[in-house]
Simulated scan of single mutants.
Amino acid sequence: MTIDLAELRSLPISEKLRIVEALWDDISASEEPIVLQPWQRDEAHRRSQEMKAAPSIAIDRDELWRRVNG
């Protein structure tokens, strides 16, 4: 499969985010293990700690789309 990156770049942000969301949903449904680089693991840990320290900073999917569609 060939993906036309120029075509993806020309899409509006809202459509790009819909594609990213679909990809994340597909990745999360996969049984294939996800191998993280050390810096990715560190960043995930940092963000997890940030969320635990201030849970009010989180937004749900509906709020995300309200902000995207503005």
Score class of each variant (00 low, 15 high):
63 E>M: 12
37 Q>V: 05
53 A>F: 03
8 L>D: 04
42 D>I: 00
60 D>T: 07
58 A>Q: 11
26 D>C: 02
41 R>T: 10
9 R>S: 12
59 I>E: 07
21 E>R: 13
18 R>N: 06
37 Q>K: 13
48 S>D: 10
19 I>E: 02
49 Q>H: 04
49 Q>K: 14
44 A>C: 06
57 I>N: 04
44 A>W: 04
36 L>D: 02
27 I>P: 01
44 A>V: 10
25 D>H: 05
58 A>D: 05
69 N>C: 03
57 I>Q: 11
13 I>L: 14
50 E>W: 05
70 G>Q: 14
16 K>Q: 15
62 D>S: 14
65 W>Q: 05
6 A>T: 12
41 R>M: 05
63 E>K: 15
51 M>R: 15
20 V>Y: 11
64 L>G: 05
3 I>W: 03
68 V>I: 15
37 Q>C: 01
65 W>A: 06
52 K>T: 07
10 S>V: 00
23 L>E: 08
8 L>C: 06
53 A>T: 10
54 A>E: 14
16 K>G: 09
6 A>P: 00
68 V>P: 08
8 L>A: 05
43 E>W: 05
14 S>E: 14
24 W>N: 04
51 M>C: 10
25 D>G: 12
50 E>D: 12
2 T>I: 06
54 A>P: 00
32 E>D: 12
47 R>C: 04
69 N>E: 15
32 E>T: 14
67 R>I: 12
14 S>M: 01
64 L>P: 02
12 P>M: 02
23 L>W: 13
62 D>V: 11
29 A>N: 09
47 R>A: 05
2 T>Q: 07
31 E>G: 12
16 K>H: 06
10 S>K: 12
46 R>Y: 13
19 I>K: 10
43 E>C: 01
56 S>M: 04
43 E>Y: 08
25 D>C: 01
17 L>N: 01
15 E>P: 01
45 H>L: 14
50 E>L: 13
40 Q>T: 05
65 W>N: 07
63 E>I: 08
61 R>A: 11
11 L>T: 01
16 K>M: 11
18 R>Y: 01
4 D>W: 03
18 R>A: 15
55 P>S: 06
17 L>V: 14
36 L>V: 02
55 P>I: 07
61 R>I: 07
18 R>H: 07
53 A>G: 11
27 I>S: 06
44 A>E: 03
37 Q>H: 10
7 E>H: 10
52 K>S: 13
11 L>Q: 11
52 K>A: 15
52 K>L: 15
25 D>N: 14
56 S>E: 15
67 R>E: 11
41 R>N: 03
19 I>A: 07
62 D>W: 00
45 H>W: 04
19 I>P: 00
5 L>V: 09
70 G>P: 02
45 H>M: 09
34 I>F: 10
35 V>M: 04
41 R>I: 03
15 E>K: 13
44 A>R: 13
67 R>D: 07
23 L>V: 15
13 I>Y: 08
26 D>T: 15
59 I>Y: 06
27 I>N: 03
14 S>H: 11
62 D>L: 08
9 R>H: 11
4 D>A: 06
21 E>L: 08
27 I>K: 09
20 V>I: 15
56 S>F: 03
6 A>Y: 00
1 M>D: 00
65 W>G: 04
49 Q>V: 07
49 Q>C: 05
70 G>V: 09
42 D>M: 06
29 A>H: 06
52 K>Y: 09
26 D>I: 02
48 S>W: 11
17 L>M: 14
55 P>N: 09
22 A>R: 14
49 Q>Y: 01
60 D>N: 15
